[in-house]
């Protein structure tokens, strides 16, 4: 059943030209970024490894933004258009519904990743970092997009409103995104260190720095960062489970 939900939603995402415009805009963002970065690299103003790190952050950051917006609407639309009741009285469980919606957002991420691959290859040419770059972007992107999607779906069950879900999700994204962009000096004090360890996006950026700038490409060299991201995914799963319980208790018609 979840396959039917996935098929319906992903068709809606890319069926018409207008609904798939985000994919073209993503490609244009990557084009402009890569062109600017490579022009600077040619002037030797930017080291190639630093350029790859910037590109990796842009790919992860843009993908998360698109995934959050997509996940915010994908479930709440069923509440706002009053189709949730119809879905739940059909032979479809809430679990099927969640898996179908989750897979749709993950497919959107997979498309964004596929669009990014040629840019990664052309910008990492000659560095020997291309395969590691692609593998770690796939790993971290999947974990982060997955974690955020589960969190946003959990919020959707609680709010049942696109506007509230999107606003809260974006604020949460900013809350993890802004400290991740702090300089190393700001993270040097004890409070900054705690935030840095607990922040999954910070862990992703630090790990990418470790891989692309310091050439520590082994999984074991990035285990602590992976643990932080995996911890976030577990928290998101628990949050979604609690939200579904709350939804079950209140029922489709919220009192």
């Amino acid at each position: 059943m979840n396959k039917l939900i996935w098929k319906k939603d992903i068709t809606a995402e890319i069926y018409t030209w207008k609904s798939a415009l985000w994919l073209l805009l993503t490609a244009i963002i990557y084009s402009v970024t890569c062109y600017l970065l490579l022009t600077n690299k040619e002037l030797s103003l930017l080291d190639q490894t630093e350029m790859l790190w910037l590109l990796a952050k842009i790919i992860i950051g843009a993908s998360l933004l698109v995934a959050i917006i997509d996940a915010s609407s994908i479930l709440t639309v069923e509440f706002e258009q009053e189709t949730m009741e119809d879905l739940l009285i059909s032979p479809l469980s809430v679990k099927d519904l969640i898996i179908g919606k989750f897979l749709t957002v993950m497919t959107v991420w997979a498309l964004m990743y596929a669009v990014a691959v040629p840019y990664v290859l052309v910008s990492s040419a000659g560095s020997g970092l291309g395969p590691a770059f692609l593998a770690y972007i796939a790993l971290y992107g999947t974990l982060m997009v997955g974690g955020f999607t589960l969190f946003v779906l959990g919020l959707s069950f609680l709010y049942r409103s696109f506007k509230n879900t999107l606003t809260t999700s974006l604020v949460f994204y900013l809350a993890v995104g802004i400290p991740a962009l702090f300089s190393a000096t700001l993270k040097a004090n004890p409070f900054g260190s705690i935030i840095s360890v607990a922040n999954p996006l910070d862990a992703v950026f630090s790990s990418l720095d470790n891989i692309l700038v310091d050439y520590h490409t082994a999984l074991t060299a990035n285990a602590t960062y992976l643990a932080s991201v995996a911890g976030f995914v577990v928290v998101a799963v628990v949050f979604l489970a609690v939200s579904v319980k709350v939804f079950d208790r209140h029922g489709i018609v919220k009192e």
Binding site: L23, S31, Y35, T39, V115, P118, Y119
Partner: peptide, 20 residues
């Protein structure tokens, strides 16, 4: 410096949006 194709990026930068 007039190099329109630094790092051979132009075919990808122009080509991919066109392909989409």
């Amino acid at each position: 410096k007039k190099n329109l194709n630094p790092g051979a990026v132009l075919p990808v930068a122009l080509g991919e949006p066109i392909l989409i």
